[in-house]
Design a protein around this nucleic acid. Sequence first.
DNA 1: CTGTTAGCGCCTTCAC
DNA 2: GTGAAGGCGCTAACAG
Lengths: 344, 344
Amino acid sequence: MAKQHPASPEARSAGATIYSVADHAGVSIATVSRVLQGATVVAEATRQKVLTAVEELGYVPTGAARSLAVRHHEAHGLVLPELSGPYYAELLMGFEARAAELAQSVVLVLTNSRTDMAAAVRQLATRVDAIAVFGSAAIPADLVRLLRAKKPVVVIAGEPQDGIEAVAAENLESARELAGHVLDHGRRRALFVGDPDSGPDIRNRYDGYLAAHRDRGLDAAEPVLARLSEADGTAFAQRLLAGEHEADALMCANDELALSIMTTLQDAGRDVPGDIAIVGWDDVMTARYVRPGLTTVRQPVHELGALAADRLHELVGGEPPRTYAQMLPTRLVVRTSCGCLPVT
Amino acid sequence: MAKQHPASPEARSAGATIYSVADHAGVSIATVSRVLQGATVVAEATRQKVLTAVEELGYVPTGAARSLAVRHHEAHGLVLPELSGPYYAELLMGFEARAAELAQSVVLVLTNSRTDMAAAVRQLATRVDAIAVFGSAAIPADLVRLLRAKKPVVVIAGEPQDGIEAVAAENLESARELAGHVLDHGRRRALFVGDPDSGPDIRNRYDGYLAAHRDRGLDAAEPVLARLSEADGTAFAQRLLAGEHEADALMCANDELALSIMTTLQDAGRDVPGDIAIVGWDDVMTARYVRPGLTTVRQPVHELGALAADRLHELVGGEPPRTYAQMLPTRLVVRTSCGCLPVT
DNA sequence: CTGTTAGCGCCTTCAC
DNA sequence: GTGAAGGCGCTAACAG
């Protein structure tokens, strides 16, 4: 025996290490490592001895030791604001699935539940090889840049900058198409509900709304600032009912906003889309359950997550970061809240 | 210098270690470790030197090395089937939030995206101190038991067994209450839609349905087997419309099922709850958007996740596992799909 | 095909 | 208050 490692009886259940396995099988630790890694060829007989020993001792390797030795964590970090609504969940599913294929663990950080997100992200950096961060808004830009100096980082649904790669879904053109669709129903007082300054995603959707007006030589109104929650939607709807705004169409920054506004207006006796057309963004599950069905835009969220995981892996592999944002196409989903007739 | 560690110029950005920091600051690595851990007292002057060095080198500690030394991963594993629908997402949020408070990272594994979940779970065990697994059904029971021998495990929404602790939301009594509520509307041909054998949760809900009938001296029908997806709901609704089943009330195993059934029936001209009452389980967002609003049961999902994280932490801390399942109370949410009159 | 031997980067007594 | 030195468990040459 090389060192005096505890091969004591009760080291059995508690802390089986590669050493215990080795001498339980009567081989060297190198051999154990070999059969477990499966890289080098090992004689079938010894192989079996080792496997048996592993089984009998219930050996569970210590990941940290391996990581330290191979100088890789074999894990990707993902930083999301939260998980309510289908958007982030779907993104995470896509990310996790791809990471799994690449044999990478995923460690998750939700910033909304943190009091000190900077510390959380630093701590995360400590145990992963690369990090995907949602939106540039979520965590301070300089923190991201700092990280970038040490580990590959990709921003999801954000702009590329300073050698920080970005992946996103297409927003501008689809927004232009969606807004155009509404305008082509003859609506002339369309309002954009959402805050263009809350991130590049919404910004682009607003820009698309502007472009659609421009395309038709129409004037576009200023955006009605609102965050992306049901509460904000309800509040806006109430102001609308109170006569603070006038509109025959609403292009909402996301579905949750659209849905809560729609329901509030309907409960107050308004006819959608008769009195007012409403469209959203995301195509959440509820969008196809409400009446009228919500016209919206579907994003390839799952693919977006997968793409992020993919890029992370390639960056870790040494590939240089891309300087352009990678765009995934979105798709207009026309139902009837926009004023289209129901398909019977 | 103790060992010949690369203090070379370009070790700067790439791989700052505790050694680089140490000699950049002109102290020993022990001191660096001390100021970073903040445990022992260090002279304010040296403390600052170290901090400066850390800053200048952009030092990011290697988690693996620390884990190896302290013999703790400081991470919790969470195994979920998937993330669609609000249930799992909420659970995960609760788990993550509590884990964060306890300074534990969370590494997530989604089994539905895995071809080899056993390998995934083994691999997970490699890098965490403890694991929470959703439902006993998801992963083979013997795998769980195997793990249990090495690391603390808690099952979420499952039964406790073999020293494996369980946490769950109350199902039986609330189901009894819900079913009773429907029956008390005078419905006499109530059907349970869902598969009692798909897990203890559903089993308990079905048992509650049975109990409610028994309470009233009524006969209960056999359950209509269905999984918890929209597709299954639609399929069942079609069979119902085709006359394969007869019912004046439907108690569905979850909301997604209930919602898809309700919509399909309505689209076919049926009146809910006039012709048929429908109730679900979970209180997803859509449940309050549809018309009629879906009567359902709200579970404290967030708390459930938090509880799991909590227990994991205490088990790691050496506390003995509890032998009884920890139940969190649920709440009946009455809307109008059950036959109640709308509140105006 | 298998064993020996250095580390991987950090924490932690134990001296000073 | 600070430094020296020995692991933590595993991988990866390097010899046989």
